[in-house]
Write a protein that binds this DNA or RNA. Structure first.
Lengths: 137, 137
DNA sequence: TTTACTGCAAACCGTTTGCAGTTCC
DNA sequence: GGAACTGCAAACGGTTTGCAGTAAA
């Protein structure tokens, strides 16, 4: 069983065929699907699943903190890798997204003198570039 | 005259009353307006300006590289501070956004071993926290 | 049995587009 | 004069919502 599914069951998330399929589709490394992509993949396993149900499930997973939402371009993407701090590396041409892991604490890069009195609690970092295929090297 | 307007004129951007107002509304420090906010402010100066014209102008300013687009929440925001590398510091409660300036080169934080063969050319960083008002301190 | 989830379809919101009319250079 | 911009209104794509029916616990 997928890690995500295991965690959700452990947290008493009410399970249905639809929710199971959404969780299974999302599980894995470097997964950053849009709601539409989740729906498409879920539909191959459970043809009667509806768009609204996919959105409902995704919204709850985000609220539970089991999935992260990334507001990259038009459509939001959903990232199941919520339990290990990481950043994103995106190809500007094909849109491929990889998870990358920081060396130190990225919050340390913002000195108090640049904080405008804010209480800073997190940081989102997206590196942009070209993947090996699109760079043509 | 605003800096932005000066630069645009220097680049031969065809000037109209509408475009001038959009550029004036955007000019300044820590400005991160949505298209709707730009339209609202522009309308107070030029009541007959249309939504489409605002979108047209914003799109061109982004293409010219004179304004940056930030895909924060639902609506995109437009940042005229395009000529000095910077990052954003956002209040999770009220949505206020400040520009902050990096100490070193943030690209250096991503080691080659974490680049998956990508040619990395840029990075977007958003710090999240609470502004002094919302933190209630 | 009760509470919560599902599917449908319409509504919603930010953004884009086609086109006739107008303006800048 | 001619190319480019403007305003209108309709279309669009992603997301949200209301509600009647269904299924999990």
């Amino acid at each position: 069983m997928s890690d995500l599914l295991k965690r959700l069951r452990g947290r008493g998330w009410r399970m249905t065929a639809q929710r199971r399929v959404v969780a299974e589709v999302l599980d894995g490394e470097h997964v950053h699907l849009t709601a539409d992509e989740v729906l498409a993949r879920a539909t191959t396993r459970l043809p009667e699943i509806s768009r609204a149900t996919v959105y409902n499930a995704l919204g709850e997973l985000v609220t539970l903190g089991e999935v992260l939402e990334i507001a990259d371009g038009r459509a939001r993407r959903y990232d199941p890798n919520a339990h290990r701090p990481h950043q994103h590396l995106t190809c500007s041409v094909c849109g491929d997204i990889r998870d990358v892991h920081p060396a130190g604490d990225p919050l340390a890069a913002l000195p108090a003198s640049e904080r405008y009195g804010f209480v800073v609690s997190g940081v989102e970092i997206t590196y942009r570039g070209l993947c090996p295929t699109c760079a043509g090297t």
